[in-house]
Nucleic acid binder design. Structure first.
Lengths: 106, 106
DNA sequence: CGTAATACATCGTATCACGAGGTATATGTT
DNA sequence: AACATATACCTCGTGATACGATGTATTACG
């Protein structure tokens, strides 16, 4: 899938991945895999960005002798998802414009 | 609207704007305005990129004493739009993931 | 004993949208 | 005549950002 098309959805995808339950890097990647493929370097960049924007908080906990960094969504994070849903209406209208007059001879 | 969310749609929007009829920079911006706002610097960057990718060809013609540069979509350009339509299915599945479990308490 | 899986992180690069700035003509407006 | 606005083109620098490459360390499997 085109990289550019994913942009703008990735941040919200990560937020959605921790929406119902705190999660950690490795698990987020696996959970998102069926929908979007993203590399570790991309994920950690995004997580840092979201933390800086106060959309999530972090907590480190031990699991099987290894340290795991858990990410917890904030109210601002939830609001970001809501905002995305509002913006989606515009996205759809752009899509409609692009495919306008295409269906007939498809 | 979020800049990132527009990315990946802009190229295809410009192609869609010249899909049925050759057009020129100034007109493309005005035609797209109801759907996406994009600056001249952005448009000309995109047009250059699309020309380099052989998705459109150019032709300069005089109109009212002023020169206009007309853009004409190629077969590759049409195929790009078709590809976008296929990719859209993935976009929708990502969207579904993000809003999953949100409708109930909305 | 090596390889994969788990789990974290950083750095450099390439792509790209956009604001700021520049050029030039035609059409109002005062 | 002077000035503003609309039309029409273009370039350069900057900031945002996705990702490959790379590095560290532990656990599990064969």
């Amino acid at each position: 899938m085109d990289i550019q098309l994913k942009r703008g959805m990735l941040d919200v995808c990560v937020l959605a991945a921790i929406k119902d339950e705190d999660s950690y890097g490795y698990k987020i990647i696996k959970d998102l895999k069926p929908y979007v493929e993203l590399s570790e370097s991309t994920l950690y960049t995004i997580l840092k960005r979201l933390e800086a924007a106060s959309m999530l908080t972090t907590r480190t906990a031990e699991h099987d002798g290894r340290l795991r960094k858990y990410y917890h969504i904030t109210d601002a994070g939830h609001r970001r998802i809501e905002e995305f849903k509002r913006e989606w209406k515009e996205v759809i209208s752009i899509y409609q414009f692009v495919i306008k007059g295409e269906e007939e001879h498809a």
